[in-house]
Each structure stands twice: as C-alpha cells, then as structure tokens.
Nucleic acid binder design. Structure first.
Lengths: 315, 315
DNA sequence: AATTTGTTTTTTATCGATTAAAGTACAATT
DNA sequence: AATTGTACTTTAATCGATAAAAAACAAATT
C-alpha cells in the first residue's frame, strides 16, 4: 500500500503554520492551505481532521481557528516524512561512498529489498531512475553492476560539467543589462560575502549556496539536458559533502573566493576572464572530488561465477 | 509472471543457426550455444529440448546433430520476441509522433496500462526510464505530463549534440595515426560510397549507417555521459525515420554526402575543416528534425481541472 | 457568481506472489 | 579438461490487489 509520508509532512508543516499564526487566528481556506502546503485538498482535510482531534484547531466549518499550539514532541519523526525513493537513494549512496563499494560488484534487487525492508518493486524503480547517474549499469535479466564512484567517473563528470558551464557562463556574460539574472547574481555575491565573514561557524551552508550559484549560471541559457545533467552534479555533491568532512571549512573558503572571482568576471562581461575564472573553479572542485574517489579501476564484470554481493548496511 | 521472450527469441535464432549449419552438422556445446545466443545454459537446454521435440536435432547426448531444417512458419512471431519494455516504448513513441500529441497532455499510468494490456507496474517502469529522454515529466503523486516532441525539444537536443560532437570530432582529428579508429572510419567511408551507389534501392539502410558513424566519432574520446546522450539521439532518430518518410531518399542522399565531406575533413586532421563539416552536417540534420515537430509551444500544465487524456491507440 | 466545503471517483505508490531465466553444484561421461 | 545430465537455489520480470493522495463532482454559503 501507499505510505502516508505526504500526510505526515503536511501535518508537521501545519504545526509550524499554526504556531506562526498564533492562538485565535483564523485559518486559511482548505484550498489556500493546500496550495501553501503543496498537497491536495483531500490531504488538507485529513490534516485538519487530525488537528481538530488534537484540539489544535476548532472544527467549525467556515471559520476554523487556531485553538492551541501543539508541542513539538507531537510531531511525526522526520524519518517518517521522507518518501521511500529518497530513503532508498540515501542508503544506497551511503553504502557506495562510505564503504567504498568496489566497481564490478553485483547489486541485486532482492537483497537490497531485504536489507532496506521494502518490496522489490520500489528497489527496481529506484535503480531504474538512478541508472542515469552513471554509477550503475543494468544487465537485462541478470541484475545490476556497480560501476562505482571512481576517479574515471569524476573525470568524465567534470569533462561534461566544464563543457556545459563554459557554455552557460559565456551566455551569462552576454545577457542584456536588463536581465533579472544580474540582480540575482548580485544578491548571491552578497550572500557569498556574508558567508565568508562568518565562515568559521557557517561553512556548512556553502553546499546550498554552491548549488544555487551554478544553477543560476545555467539559467542564462536554459536547456533541459543541461539541467538534467546538473542534477547529477547536485546529487553527487550533496552526498559527497555529507560524507567527506576533511578540510571542509578550508575547502569551502577557497571555493567561495573562487565564486567571487567568477562573479566579478561575469559582471565585467569579459569572456576571456569569465572562461578563466570558470576553469579555475571547476579545476579545484574536480581535484577535491577526485581525491575522495576509490581509484581509476573499472573491473570488468565477472560472469559465470558468483559475484561479490552488494552489502548495504542494514537500517 | 515473467514472459518468455528470451526463450522465444533464442529459439528463433536457433532455427537460423541450424539452417546455417545444414542437415547433418554437429551442434556446438551447450555453453558455446549459450554464448552465441546470449542466454544462459538453462535457456539453451530448454531450446534444445524444444528442437528435439520438433525433430530438428537429434537428442544424442554428446553428439547432437542437425536433423532437419524447420519451416520458417514454425517460428514464434516476431511480436512475441520483443521485451515488454520495448513494446511499450514503441507504442508510446508512435502515439506521440504519429498523433502529434500535444504538450501539456496528462499521461496516466492506469489508462496506458489498460490500453497496452499490461500491469501498471510495467508502465511505471517504462515511464521512469523514459523520463531521461526529456519528453515527459513526473509530478509526484500526480502522474506525468507530456512535454512533447516540440521544436524547443529539437533545438535543445541539437545544441547539446553539437557541443558533444565538436568535442569528439576534435579529439578524433588528433588521434594518433596508429589508432584502430582510422581503419574503422575508412571502412565506414567505403560503406557510404557503396550505399550512395545504390541509393535508389537501399536508402533505408542509411539510418543504421548514420548511427554507427556518429558512435564511432564519439568513440574517439569515450565518456559515459556523451554515450548516454547519444542514446537519446539514436532513439529519436530511430522513430523519426520510421515515421517521417517525406523526401527520405533525398534527405539521406544529402546526409551521405555530408558524412563523406566530414570523413574527408577528419582524415585531413585539419581541425578548422573538421569543425566546419561537423557544423554543416548537424545543421541540416537539425533542420530535418525541426520540420517535423509540432511547434514551439510548451503549454503550461493545467491543474485542478481534468486535463486532456493521453489516448494511445489500442493494440 | 465565486468560494468554500462535503462526497465520490480516479489514480498513484507500494506490497506480495508467481513464473522465466540465471546461476550453482557436482557427479558421470568422453 | 571440457561437456552433459540432473537437480536445486536465487533472482528478475510481471501480475493483481490495496491504501493514500489527487482530482472531479455536487451542494452549500457568502
């Protein structure tokens, strides 16, 4: 059956919302709530019913009000608000990165399903979607082979990344002065400066800023394939940041300065400078990533004999 | 339950094989047959048992021989040897291209499943894999939206294609003279000349040649993301060739000449010439593709109201 | 007349079960 | 040492069913 993560997340978000509104405040209409929480009215009504049950809101049809603010302890645990697919992805990536899973390892649906406690269907769905990241490969009727997070992977990834980002950065530099992107990049520049100021305490916040920065560059010349590719980058970095804490503050500080130089180059509209700044930054990002890969080897898949099994660590 | 397309295809292929060997010839060992047919020994034995049953091969243990060549009418129909996923893809693409399905149309799993006569699981799997082609988009918990085969799609596709192919072609031109790829491209050049010679009768064969030509260029500097992207191109052209027959002979002849100029540029190792030839060819391919698209519009998805349904034509 | 709410229908996410195919193991045969 | 028969175990592909969420319809209210 379908899980109710949508309901649980909406319920938790509603608790925040009523705390924000304060006791006595009138609630928005069901449709307005749905739009705000990003769920259908069906789910809104379920949440509202649960809240009325807890005595958090009064149930009167057309004039619902906040009656009491619910204790944070009454919230659903965060783990229960994460969609199954995302959970599977996280566990799989952790296994691959943390345990440095070896290229050539067989990944098998049944065993993954057992270890993650889900039906095989969900695992299949995940693997099929995950395939596009280039880290696994399907052999029809015979499971999946891990290609692995190797330095080859990182090199190929960054070759394309550079190709794409140079293209986008050139387009950015040629943007008409009236383009709203100029304001956005100026705002990002200021965010960078603020972060640099408090780098000792807030260096973790760089990951998100990095993501927004590169997406903004790509927005100069939208292309669905570039955007899709950037999702691969974002995914890799998302997990990589969580896993490789070595020199994190230092690395992020360097990257921030590179971003600032990159932004300056863009605002100068001097294509040669833009290209140089872009290349410099990507080269150092590549270095960082490669240092944490397993190595170059892509061991050919062993056939005919029992292959090493994927051992994702149990929950 | 699992379908037995693997068995049926292997069986058909075996019929071809025994016809090729001729009556009286000794059959290869089970393992050798498995390697040749691309299936496991389990399936080989099933096929062999079926063939013995038909009297096509003698069942004697270690000296199996071809006894009779089976009539082509005894083969399994081709439709039964196509994996479900491929069938779904074909039907879906035909619907989109032939019926010029409108961007913004909702694609719904249940209805597709009903129309194609499969379980919804298979449809989901297909849609998840198909997503990477950039023609559909998922809205979690709420089905899929067709982005459609629009001119925007073609433009974005060709922007990346040019970026990638210029990169590969430059690398090709710089290949050391000892590289085996030089021999391969020379062989392809001759194939092009032969095809040009018989263009009136054989213009259909260009599609396959085109595919092999561009893959060879990409092989100059292997990169999994470039290869993955080329699968999108190949898929689009595969269906496009089947669907748009207008001026086919003429178009293919032009393309062959462009390929020949491109190959000459490569063998000259003059990067400027290579780039020019590559751009010329891709520009004309782009033109062809764009002429058969629906138009630029990407209608925003309608929400809250029943959207137009995807009407894939029944089997 | 447009919102808002109550009710019903449709669709997606997820499960568990079943069959085909792959893979394992090993002794018997050439 | 490779090939085969036999028998078995494991895994992938595919189905149908069910609960949650979305969407549509209908009635009530301002």
């Amino acid at each position: 059956m379908k899980s109710d993560v949508v309901f649980k997340r909406a319920y938790n978000d509603s608790l925040d919302l009523i705390a924000e509104l304060g006791v006595g405040a009138a609630l928005p209409s069901e449709n307005a709530l749905g739009a705000r929480l990003g769920v259908s009215r069906t789910t809104v009504r379920k949440v509202l019913a649960a809240l009325a049950d807890k005595g958090a809101v009064s149930g009167a049809p057309r004039q619902r009000r906040v009656r009491a603010v619910v204790q944070p302890t009454q919230r659903f645990p965060d783990a229960e608000t994460v969609p199954l697919g995302a959970q599977v992805e996280r566990r799989f990536m952790e296994w691959m990165l943390r345990d440095n899973a070896c290229p050539g390892t067989a990944v098998n649906e049944l065993e993954l399903a057992r270890q993650l406690g889900t039906a095989t269907t969900s695992i299949r769905e995940f693997l099929n979607r995950f395939q596009r990241f280039g880290l696994i490969e399907k052999r029809p009727n015979a499971g999946w082979i891990l290609k692995g997070f190797t330095s080859d992977f990182a090199l190929e990834l960054f070759e394309i990344r550079e190709l794409f980002e140079l293209r986008s950065a050139r387009a950015f530099a040629k943007l008409p002065p009236a383009s709203p992107l100029w304001r956005q990049i100026e705002a990002l520049r200021e965010e960078h400066l603020r972060l640099l100021d408090e780098i000792e305490q807030r260096f973790h916040d760089f990951s998100d800023l990095d993501n927004r920065f590169h997406r903004l560059i790509n927005a100069a010349l939208p292309n669905r394939f570039v955007e899709d590719f950037y999702e691969i980058i974002a995914m890799i970095f998302h997990y990589h940041y969580q896993w490789n804490k070595q020199d994190e503050r230092q690395r992020n500080e360097v990257a921030i300065r590179e971003h600032l130089a990159y932004i300056d180059a863009l605002t100068s509209r001097d294509v040669t400078r833009v290209e140089a700044a872009c290349r410099t930054h990507l080269a150092s990002a590549k270095e960082t990533l490669i240092r944490s890969t397993a190595g170059p080897a892509a061991v050919p898949p062993q056939r005919g004999r029992r292959r090493r099994r994927a051992g994702v660590t149990p929950a």
